[in-house]
Design a binder for these strands. Structure first.
Lengths: 336, 336
DNA sequence: TTGTATGCGTTATCAC
DNA sequence: GTGATAACGCATACAA
C-alpha cells in the first residue's frame, strides 16, 4: 500500500482509477474540467494509494520553485524574526515555502559569503531583502529572482521597497522630547552608513530645525544591547550634559538605561529616553520605554504581498511607507 | 550572452566547450574524473555563458530537495530564532537550504494547520521539529522525511533528540537557591503539558528531595513576559510567602520582576529569582538575572548535524543531551 | 576518459 | 472530455 521507499506515482493512480495520467493530473489541479465520473474515480484512487504530487517534478515542469528566500541580517535578532513571521503568513496562504538565509553568518572564505549561489531562479521564485548592507552587485545578474526590499534598503538596488516611516518616527520622537522641554538631545544611531539611521537622522534634524535648533549630536551604536550600554559613558562625557536621548532601536535604549543605572543615574529624571521599534521587552524594562511602534509582522506581510504581486504584473518600483506611532511610557519626562 | 528570460542550459555549455552534456555534468560535479583538457574547456564555457545548474532538474534527477524544514513554534521568539541560526550554519556548510515553518501561525481551517502538506519527501530532505505540541500522527506516514527533535520533544514520536540537560539545569538552579538559604521555592513553569517543564519539574523536586524538602509549589505560565508578570499576583497571594522563584525561562523571569517591582517589592531582597536560557536581555534587566545558560545556536547545529548523519547511516534513536550551566548574577541573594 | 541514451514525475500540447 | 506524448534540465548506466 504505502511503501516508504517507493511512493505512488501519478501512473499508479491512473492505473487504479482506469484513466490516463493526463486525466489524473487535471483532476487534481483543475477538477472542473474533468467529468464527475473521472474525478470521483481519481479521488478514490488517490485516497487508496496515498498519492501526493512530487513537487520537484511539478516545479521542474512549471519552471518554478514554490519558495521565497528571505535574506536576513541576523536571524537571532527578534526584530527580524518577527518580520519573518509576517512573511511566512503570507507565503503560506499562497502555498509557498519560506527559505531563510542569515547573511551575518556568512562564509568568510567566499566573496559575499556564498550568498550569490542562493540568488538563482532555480532556488527561489523571489527574494525579500532585509539586509541593507549587501553588495548590490549580488543581484545584478539575469538569473536573480524578482526581489523586494523590506525594512532596510540598498542604495542602487532596484525593486519595490516596503519601509516603515522612519523619518516621521524620528520626528515624532523628537517632537515629544521637545514638548517636554528638552533642548539638548542626542541621537544614538545604528552604524553610520545604515540606511535606517540616515533617514531617521533626517527626521531628527528636521524636527529640530522646525524648533529653530541645530542638528542633534550623534553617537554611533550598532543596534545592540552592548553598544547601548557602551554609549552611556560617551553620553556622560559630553558637556554640557544632554538631557534626552533618541535611540535608533529599543535594544540600544535598554542597554543605555542599564549603563546609566550602573552610573547611578535615573531615567527619566536625569535623562529622558526614546527608543524605536516597540519590541515586546520594552514594556517590561526597568523603566517602561517610550518608543516608536513599528508593525513588524505587518511589514513582513506587505513585503511578501508585494513580491507575489510581481508574479503577475511586473509592478513599477514603488516604495510603500508604513505608518509608525509614538508609544509614551515612563522613560520620558519633563525636563527639570 | 546572458539572457534573463532564457538562461543557458547544460547543452549550451556542452556545445560551446565541444564536449557532450555528460562530460559537462561530470566536470561540474566531479572534476577529478574528466581530463584536464575537458575540464578547462568546460570551465571556460561555463564562465562565458554564465551557466549555473538548474537545481530543480538536478533535484528531480537525484531524488532530493536540497533543503531541510524546521518546524518552529514561534518564529518571533528569539529563543527559537537563535536555534534556527545554528541550524542554518550547519546546513549552509553542506550547501543545503533552510525552510522554516511557523507552527503557531497555523491555518485554523485545516486540521493540523496545513503542516501535513509540508511533511513530504518532495518538499524537504529532512525535518527538525522544535515544537513539542504537535500531533505525532502528523509524522506517521511513509512520505515523511527523516526527522530530528530538538529542544522540545513529542511523546510517542520516534527519531533522535537533541536536548538541553533540563533536569540538571533545574537542579543547579534549586541547589543554588538552597545554598542561599531558601526553603520555600516556587517553580514558575511553562504550560503544564510542556515536556520541558515536566523534565525541569523532575529536576526541581529531585534537588528538593535530596535536601529533605517536599516538592515545589508550581505556578503555570506560558513562557511569555506577560504570563511572568501575571504570576506576581499569584505569588504574593501565597502564605507563607515564598522567598524564591525558579522560572522556566528568562522571559517569564523578567516579566515576574516587572510585576513584583510594580508591587513595590525588591529583587533579590524580597525574592530571589532564577531564570532559564540566558537570553541576551537577561544581563541587561533592571536586576541582572541569575539563570541557566543554554547554548542555543550550538543546539541548533547539533540537531542539524544529527539529521545529516541520518542521510548516510540510519542512526539509532539516540538522545543527545547538551550540558547547561548556572550563571550567577544579581537576582539571587542570601535569604534574610 | 568520453558519448549515447534513458529516466526522474509531472504538466501541457495536441489530436481525437 | 480524454489519451498519448513531448518537454522540463539534469545525472548516470552502459557502451565505446
Amino acid at each position: 500500500m504505502t511503501d516508504p521507499t517507493n511512493p505512488p506515482k501519478i501512473r499508479d493512480v491512473a492505473r487504479l482509477a482506469g484513466v490516463s495520467v493526463a486525466t489524473v493530473s487535471r483532476a487534481l489541479s483543475n477538477p472542473a474540467i474533468v467529468s464527475e465520473q473521472a474525478r470521483i474515480a481519481v479521488e478514490k484512487a488517490v485516497a487508496e494509494t496515498g498519492y501526493t504530487v512530487n513537487l520537484m517534478a511539478r516545479n521542474l515542469r512549471q519552471q518554478q520553485v514554490g519558495a521565497v528566500l528571505a535574506l536576513v541580517p541576523n536571524l537571532a535578532n527578534p526584530f527580524f524574526s518577527e518580520i519573518l513571521a509576517g512573511i511566512s503568513d503570507t507565503l503560506r496562504a499562497e502555498g509557498l515555502s519560506l527559505l531563510v538565509l542569515d547573511t551575518l553568518r556568512t562564509d568568510p572564505d567566499t566573496p559575499n559569503g556564498g550568498i550569490r549561489s542562493y540568488l538563482s531562479r532555480s532556488r527561489a521564485d523571489g527574494v525579500i531583502v532585509l539586509d541593507g548592507t549587501l553588495d548590490p552587485a549580488l543581484f545584478a545578474h539575469g538569473s536573480c529572482p524578482p526581489l523586494v526590499q523590506a525594512c532596510e534598503w540598498i542604495e542602487g538596488l532596484a525593486g519595490p521597497r516596503v519601509l516603515a516611516d522612519n523619518e516621521t518616527g524620528a520626528r515624532l520622537a523628537i517632537e515629544h522630547l521637545l514638548g517636554l522641554g528638552h533642548r539638548d538631545i542626542v541621537h544614538l544611531t545604528g552604524p553610520a552608513k545604515n540606511t535606517l539611521s540616515i533617514s531617521r537622522a533626517a527626521g531628527v534634524d528636521a524636527a529640530l530645525a522646525t524648533a529653530g535648533l541645530p542638528p542633534a549630536h550623534r553617537l554611533e551604536g550598532a543596534f545592540t544591547l552592548s553598544s547601548g550600554r557602551a554609549a552611556a559613558e560617551a553620553l556622560l562625557a559630553r558637556t554640557p550634559r544632554p538631557t534626552a536621548v533618541f535611540c535608533d532601536n529599543d535594544e540600544m535604549a535598554i542597554g543605555l538605561m542599564a549603563g546609566l543605572r550602573a552610573e547611578g543615574l535615573d531615567v527619566p529624571r536625569d535623562f529622558s529616553i526614546v527608543g524605536f521599534d516597540n519590541i515586546e521587552m520594552s514594556a517590561y524594562a526597568s523603566v517602561p520605554l517610550t518608543t516608536i511602534r513599528q508593525k513588524r509582522a505587518h511589514l513582513g506581510r506587505c513585503a511578501a504581498e508585494r513580491l507575489l504581486a510581481q508574479r503577475t504584473a511586473p509592478t513599477p518600483d514603488e516604495t510603500l511607507i508604513l505608518p509608525v506611532e509614538l508609544v509614551i511610557r515612563d522613560s520620558t519626562a519633563k525636563r527639570v
